[in-house]
Simulated assay, not measured.
Amino acid sequence: MQMDRNVLRGLQAIDSLLLKELKSCRAKEYNFLPRETGLRMMESASTENHSGVSAKCRDTRVEELWGLTSFFGYSTQTFVQAVNFLDRFLTVMKVQPKHLPCIGVCCLDIAAKMVEEANNVSPTHELIRISQSKFTVSDLRRMEKIISEKLSVEPEAVTALTFLRLYYPTFTFLSAGREEIPSIGRLEAQLKACLCRLVFSKAKPSVLALSLIAQEFEALQSITLSKIVQQFQRHLKIGDSELLHWKELVAKCMTDYCSSECNKPDNKKLVWIVSRRTAQNLQANHFSVPGLPTIHEGIWDERESEDSGEDMSCGEDSPCGSPGSDGEGTYFPSAYLHRKK
């Protein structure tokens, strides 16, 4: 009981530093939510009639964005912001499925330019090439203009990641030395997994972030951590039934993603598409070691040297040049394997 009183006193002591910011973000989060009517239309859309973007089509595109994020070394914030742009745009505009690749890559490009350091942002043509998309840089620029006009494209969008990073230091501060809590990296990886499912776009960011924490900490059976969750609930006026609903959905999502049958997006290879002729040449040469001509001492012929330097580079058509080998990554940290940073 003494520990619980200390926890409550500790939370009250940091109210002035944290709760004001939390409440400010809570008030602004509605400005960055996708429209519910648009989300319902995607849920009801069929993947066969091509009349609109379906939930499955959207989820597949988000998984591909996760793969691109990992390949280019972008941060979790870039990915989360890109998904937020994508969902908001899809719920205010009627989009044909054939335009979705351009929209998705464009959202990632916009987010990367807002979040990442300038020298870490991949050139647009490289992003298009690695994503194996068929549109051009000028197509992407036109789409960027449309998205910017239709959305409030702000660098400080309030997302579930915003709240997750605001909540987490309180748990580490008040449980220091007493509880071993999961890392912020683990929670961020779980958030990315949830965002690959359209249903979580319906959740308020403040509630989704607290649901992730509550679900993860529930297994620890810690009274201290439970009290902190309850305090955040009280201050942000999050009901027990609402938190329980999303916590159960998060738990189901984690169970599904931990199964061996799940095709995890962060564990997929980026594969080059090559012509049949190139593929045949690769199959013929990949496992053979070319013989090198003997270089006789004292008789160095520059022409022979040039001829012996056959094309051994790892270019686009070479299996060792495939970005898949660099783009692979594990899915979850710690108990879910090891997190790729």
Rank of each mutant, 00 (worst) to 15 (best):
M3Q: 08
N6F: 11
R9A: 14
L11V: 08
A13I: 03
A13G: 05
E21V: 11
L22Q: 13
K23L: 15
R26D: 14
Y30Q: 10
M41T: 12
E43C: 07
S44P: 05
E64H: 13
E64S: 03
G67Q: 05
L68I: 01
F71R: 01
Y74I: 14
Q77E: 15
V83H: 03
D87W: 02
D87E: 05
T91E: 12
T91G: 12
M93S: 09
Q96S: 11
H99G: 00
H99A: 06
H99V: 01
C106E: 03
C106I: 09
K113W: 11
E117F: 06
N119A: 14
T124F: 07
E126L: 13
I130E: 13
S131F: 09
K150S: 10
Y168F: 15
L187S: 02
E188S: 09
R197F: 09
V199E: 15
A203R: 06
Q221L: 03
S222K: 08
T224Q: 06
Q231L: 07
R234Y: 09
H235N: 07
L236I: 00
I238R: 01
D240R: 01
D240K: 02
S241E: 15
L244W: 01
K252Q: 15
C253D: 13
C253F: 03
P265S: 09
W272T: 13
V274C: 00
S275R: 02
R277T: 15
T278H: 11
N285R: 12
H286W: 07
S288V: 03
E297C: 13
W300K: 06
E304N: 13
E304G: 08
G315V: 04
Y336L: 06
K340H: 04
K340G: 13
